[in-house]
Amino acid sequence: MRAGFCFGIAATLLSLAIPAASAEQARLRLIGEQRIPHRLVFDGTVVGGLSGIDYDARSDTWVMASDDRSEFSPARFYTARLDYDATQFRAIKLEAVHLFRQADGSTYPAQQGEVADIEAVRVDPQDGSIWYASEGSGSLGLSPFVRRAAADGSYRVALPMPDLFKDDPGHQRGPRNNLSVEGLSFAPDGQSLWLGMEAPLYQDGPVATQEHGAVSRLTQFARSGKVLAQYAYPVDRVQGVPAAGHFGDNGVSEILVFDTYHLLVLERSGVQDAAGHFTFHIRLYMVELDGATNVGGYPALTGVDYQPLRKQLLLNFDSAGLNKVDNLEGMSWGPLLPNGHRSLVLVSDDNFSDDQVTQLLAFELLPASD
């Protein structure tokens, strides 16, 4: 066991009355916020780039994966304890760091071999092993992957990926560079996994702009890698207005299974000001699976008829009352609160940037009767 490191900042409690968006007419109430100090050094690694989070009920701990391409420290995940209840989010305590290992036992390299850009992490509900997803690298010709590791990060197995998601050197088909796999979540029974793409495959149409939205794919896999279902998710237009000549985007940054018939989807827009600094506009949607077309057999989504997934806004973080909303990329259910309600935690990826923060937000899910 490595030495722990505990820290905290004051958190504000407020109630958010949110438009109903599920069969339960769910609402969210913000419990509070905590932040991890910028570029904190823990057990010889630089903490940052936290793009995935999940709760391990067996040990009452959390795992948080970094999307560092082994540039600051080797590809890794942290275990931590979060201290919160329905009234306050008190502190975060990092407990250990584990390095992800390749099949030959080596850590992932920075710019040679197979670079890992880990965007999502989940604890296996059956045995506590760790599943993680890398979005690959179009510039390096690396396809996205989903792999399973032991609790210490050592390699176990890779999930077979369909040809649809493999990198195309000609950039005519398949995933776009840095707009690939972003979300991962287990089904309620633990027998299948959902994978969310950030943006359209090349053959599925253009990326989102200020004028129009886009479409990404959400795919359900059996644990063996067999594709069980695939749906078209409608991505919003870019939110906010970038400065002239500067960047703005919008896409899926995480997914989370709500129940058998619904998913939560986190959308994130990042827009640059004239100095190149980003402002983030985050929205959380409840998505209904029933009625959508299974597009698993469609090699392209342009020029064909299909029914996309239906979604309804659960929370617009622009109106959440927070001083700052950063680049939220990870989302997980937490333990039940003392009142029996579910808790939800989100984490931001600071990109190791001096003008961003690593923030964790804890929410309470309120049923319609409350």
Rank of each mutant, 00 (worst) to 15 (best):
P206L: 07
L322R: 08
W131C: 10
V41K: 15
G170Q: 15
R27Q: 15
R223A: 10
L313F: 02
I130F: 09
A86L: 12
F165G: 05
A243I: 11
A3K: 12
E254R: 04
E119Q: 08
P206R: 09
A91G: 01
P19L: 11
V227P: 01
V347C: 07
F317E: 02
W333E: 14
G44T: 10
G251Y: 01
R147W: 01
A80K: 11
A3D: 02
S129Q: 08
D152A: 10
E119K: 06
F72G: 13
F186W: 12
D168L: 08
D117I: 01
E329T: 05
L201K: 12
V345I: 14
V47P: 09
A57W: 02
R101S: 11
D43M: 02
D349G: 04
L184Y: 05
G340T: 14
V215P: 00
D68T: 13
F42T: 06
D127P: 05
T358G: 08
T302R: 10
L159C: 05
Y55D: 07
D204K: 06
D56L: 10
P335F: 00
L344I: 13
A103W: 14
L28F: 09
D354V: 03
S134G: 14
F7C: 13
R223S: 13
S106D: 15
V146F: 00
L263P: 02
E24N: 09
L313I: 11
L284Q: 02
D67G: 00
P169Q: 01
Q25G: 15
S15A: 15
G141R: 15
S73Q: 00
G297F: 04
L164D: 09
L195P: 03
Y202T: 02
G291F: 03
Q203S: 12
E114L: 14
F7Y: 15
Q359F: 13
N178V: 06
A300G: 08
R122S: 14
S369M: 07
G276F: 01
V345F: 04
Q203A: 10
I130G: 08
Q203D: 04
Q312P: 02
G291Y: 05
V63T: 04
V47F: 10
N316R: 01
Y108D: 11
I36F: 09
F280P: 05
L94G: 07
Q191A: 15
T260H: 08
P308G: 08
R223N: 09
V252H: 00
G213I: 04
A80T: 05
Q102R: 14
P169A: 09
F42K: 06
P234Q: 00
F278Y: 13
P74S: 12
L266P: 05
G113D: 10
A150E: 15
L99T: 14
D67L: 04
A75R: 03
A222Y: 01
D152T: 06
L266G: 04
Y108N: 10
V41L: 12
R81V: 12
D85W: 08
R2M: 13
P200M: 01
T302L: 04
N316F: 09
A244Y: 02
D189L: 04
F278V: 02
L264P: 04
R101V: 05
D370F: 09
G251S: 03
